Amino acid sequence: MSTPDRPFASYHLWSLVAPATGQERWHCQMRRGFIKARQHEPQVKALLAQATAPQRIGILAQKGVYEFHHHRHLLKQSDGVERVAQLLKLGNSSVQVQQRVLQILQKYHDAPLLLDKDIIQLTPGDEGFPKPIVVEQEDYCFRLYAAMDCVFIESDSTLHILDFKTGKSAFDKRQALVYLLAARYLYPGHEAVASFYNLEICKKSELISINNYELESLKFELANIAHKHQHDLQKYQEKTTNFSKIFPPNPGSHCRFCPFNSICEFADFKQTQSYPLPSLRAHS
């Protein structure tokens, strides 16, 4: 097998390598192995292609915001929600997905967060991989992937990176930090802040910023993650039978919510207590 090219990092990879605070108990490295090392195997590829209801809701909600601002007149029209639902082909989704997305669209139509904002980037959420940013220092180099939902300019010329959320998952500050690092390369010379907004419960996060010292520490951390992951991939490619040693499992009740439980020999369904797992939706 060929060896991977230059190592890469992203928030998604960071979340697969290291759990968010409070999620250590049900974090499983084998999940990273399935997603990043075995993603081209037919069974794994098929499982990755199956979007769960929460994933569908997240994708459609963001696309809905995009459509509202792509067709701005719909924000003013009484049938704007219905029109956007048609653009999203919402009728093709399950009843659960339809109901929740319609509620999100109605809330956004009633109080559009981005109305009158100086938007410089707003993505539909299904745009695929962004162009990688090359982060290069004297002692390391890696590709950084950061797909931002929305970027706008505040009245004081601050660059504001906004990430949309749905569901009940807690905001993970690490994602905002990755976006702020990317902004230093994509929008040089701009002071930047980042925040999250849950479209379903209309909740804003605090504004997150980063200083130069924190930025350098972040680059070093992401470089370590990138190189560790590349090293793990190389070890797996050299000996695929060592999969469970390179990407060790952490079986437990959370296995019931893992998309790979049907093909994972370590899946454990004996316990009954449940824990949320992060979404598979990611850009790298």
Rank of each mutant, 00 (worst) to 15 (best):
S209E: 07
Y11K: 01
A223S: 13
I201D: 15
K117F: 01
P259L: 00
K245L: 12
L222V: 05
R6S: 10
R256D: 10
S262T: 15
N212C: 06
A147R: 11
Q43Y: 05
A85D: 02
E265A: 12
L277I: 09
E216R: 14
L87D: 05
R6W: 00
I119L: 03
A85K: 04
L215P: 14
W26D: 08
G125Q: 02
L105S: 00
Q271G: 14
A18P: 01
V101M: 02
P132V: 05
I120H: 08
F171Q: 06
R31H: 00
S10W: 03
L105C: 04
V65T: 09
S157K: 12
N211K: 00
W14N: 14
D116H: 13
E214P: 05
H229G: 01
A267D: 09
A46H: 04
L162P: 01
H69F: 07
W14C: 13
G64M: 01
L207G: 02
R83Q: 15
I246Y: 09
F266H: 15
Y187F: 14
Q55K: 04
I153F: 09
A147I: 07
D139Y: 05
H40D: 15
Q273C: 04
P259T: 05
D149C: 07
S209R: 09
P130F: 04
G128R: 03
T240D: 14
L180G: 09
N261A: 02
H73G: 06
A49N: 15
P248F: 04
E154P: 01
F269E: 08
A147Q: 14
P124E: 00
A111C: 08
E136P: 01
P7G: 11
L215F: 13
A226P: 08
L280N: 15
H73V: 08
G22I: 07
Q98R: 07
F220R: 14
L102W: 05
A51W: 06
Q62P: 03
T272V: 11
L222Q: 03
I225W: 04
L13M: 14
K245H: 14
Q234G: 02
L16M: 13
